[in-house]
Design a binder for these strands. Structure first.
Lengths: 142, 142
DNA sequence: TCAACAGTTTAGAACTATTTTAATGTAATT
DNA sequence: AATTACATTAAAATAGTTCTAAACTGTTGA
């Protein structure tokens, strides 16, 4: 397992010791060649299905938050009862399908650069995100 | 009180009967010439301070949600433990100050029109919002 | 005026996501 | 192997939000 090195490295850089549970979390999050969106609940379910390792919610929350702090994961701002996370940490945007409660990536290239002309004294912009909410287009069905 | 008519109208259009409590909520939300951001907790506190009317959380939640459904209020997407609402229902964007947990409006005019080139079949865009997270600019202080 | 009814309000309970706690377990280092 | 420092865990705590069921209010019509 050549990936394991990477995971241990990521964990160490996040200030976490590489344990069985945490390496399993890394496998789920970083093994795929695709990036994806998830909630904590979903992540726990995936781990339970894929492995015979018990992981408590607390461990998952702690690990996910350490990765966010380090920049290995992103939190997606959404007014939903639960938080959504993204393994795609490149600069990009999102559709949120309000009917299916699904997130869809929008590449940075698909949106013109966003230039905000308003400035706040003493503050700098850390991130800019676009959320486009989408619903069924009934017009086109008629 | 000339405004009362408007409030009663808004309530009726939202499918709610105009009661003392609900009219009070309207007074707080729609009386000011300025728009503002609030959380449910803050709204309850304002009502308690301004009036001798008891309002339960349940009534406030129900009324706020009825107004959102009708488009008289907007929910602001933010990954925060509590929901933020906006009496400004025009198309605009936000700064979110991560240190003070404060929202600041950005006029639509201060951001170039956002053109998303990616399309999702059968879906249409209902809203597009920009959230720019800001923090202290330590660079400029050094 | 009064009874009946439909819709409201309310306190408190329930629910859900998240965080904390504190006891037990484990990895790393000597 | 012993020590130490950190991890894991279940369970409890917390906080925002939603639900519930009982009491209440105001309107209508006789």
């Amino acid at each position: 397992m050549a990936y394991a090195e990477q995971y241990i490295d990521k964990l160490r850089k996040s200030g976490l010791r590489p344990t069985k549970q945490r390496i399993k979390i890394c496998e789920v999050l970083f093994d795929a060649d695709k990036t994806f969106h998830f909630t904590i609940k979903e992540l726990v379910k995936i781990i339970e299905n894929q492995a015979n390792i018990k992981v408590s919610l607390a461990t998952v929350y702690n690990t996910v938050h350490a990765f966010i702090k380090k920049g290995y994961l992103k939190e997606i701002p959404l007014n939903s009862s639960q938080s959504y996370y993204d393994t795609n940490v490149t600069h990009h945007h999102h559709f949120f399908d309000e009917e299916d409660n699904k997130l869809i990536d929008i590449d940075q290239d698909d949106v013109d650069e966003i230039n905000i002309r308003k400035k706040i004294p003493g503050k700098k912009i850390r991130s800019v995100e676009v959320i486009a909410k989408i619903v069924s287009d009934n017009q086109s069905q008629k």
